[in-house]
Amino acid sequence: MSNEVKCINKSDRYDPHERILRIGGVNPDGGRWSLGQAEAIAGIESGKWSFHVHRGGNTVRVIVAISRYGNKYLKTEADGEQPDNLLSLPECPR
């Protein structure tokens, strides 16, 4: 089962691997979930979790990418180097 990412928390940095700090969404019971980027990456790589976003009527999978400097970060399959589909999501409540 894939979890829909509905919000993010981002930094003021411009490197793709430093832009997103956390991703979040809503559980089936209505409670909120939130994961740090490193924890989400580990969950994707281990097969524990999968994530997606809805953009323009399409479901787009969230994947782990590697920056040109070798750092892992989250983006969608439809993004270039910058995680634009994720960055366009609203900020998660803190």
Rank of each mutant, 00 (worst) to 15 (best):
Q82H: 15
L35D: 03
N27Y: 03
G57N: 03
S46G: 07
K72E: 08
R61Y: 13
K48F: 14
V64A: 00
R61M: 14
A38P: 08
L35I: 07
K75C: 01
R32W: 13
V64G: 00
S67M: 05
N58R: 15
W33H: 03
E45P: 09
N58Q: 13
E45M: 11
W33E: 04
I44F: 04
V60E: 14
T59A: 14
I63V: 07
E77Y: 00
E39K: 07
H54M: 15
W49N: 15
E39C: 05
L35S: 04
E81L: 13
T76C: 01
R68K: 15
G43P: 02
V62Y: 00
K48G: 10
R32F: 14
E45A: 11
P83S: 02
H54D: 14
G43D: 08
E39I: 09
P83E: 00
S50P: 11
S50V: 08
G56K: 11
F51G: 05
G30I: 05
E81Q: 14
V62M: 03
V60D: 15
K72I: 04
G57W: 01
S50D: 10
N58T: 13
S67W: 07
S34G: 12
R32N: 14
A78H: 10
P28Y: 04
A78R: 05
R32M: 15
D29E: 10
T59Y: 10
A78D: 08
Q82T: 14
K72C: 06
R68Q: 13
R61I: 15
N27G: 07
V64W: 00
V60G: 08
L74E: 01
D79K: 01
A42V: 07
T59D: 11
G30K: 02
I44Q: 04
E39D: 06
Y73G: 02
G43A: 04
G36Q: 08
G31I: 09
Y73R: 00
V64Y: 00
F51L: 06
A42L: 04
H52N: 11
S67L: 05
R68N: 13
A40R: 01
R55A: 13
G70R: 02
N27K: 10
G70T: 01
I63F: 04
I63C: 06
R68I: 12
R32K: 14
E39A: 09
P83H: 03
G56E: 09
S67N: 10
V62E: 01
G57K: 04
T76G: 00
A40P: 00
K48A: 12
N71L: 10
G30W: 01
R32T: 14
L35F: 08
A65F: 10
N58C: 15
G31M: 11
E77M: 06
K72A: 05
G47D: 07
N27E: 10
G57M: 05
V64N: 00
W33P: 02
W49M: 12
Y73I: 06
L74H: 09
G56I: 09
K48Q: 12
I66M: 12
G56Y: 04
A38V: 15
P28T: 04
S67K: 07
W49V: 12
S67I: 03
Q37P: 09
R61S: 15
S34P: 05
A38W: 07
K48D: 12
V62C: 06
V53P: 00
G36I: 07
F51E: 02
K75M: 01
N58S: 15
N71H: 13
I41E: 06
V53G: 01
W49Y: 13
T76W: 00
G43I: 02
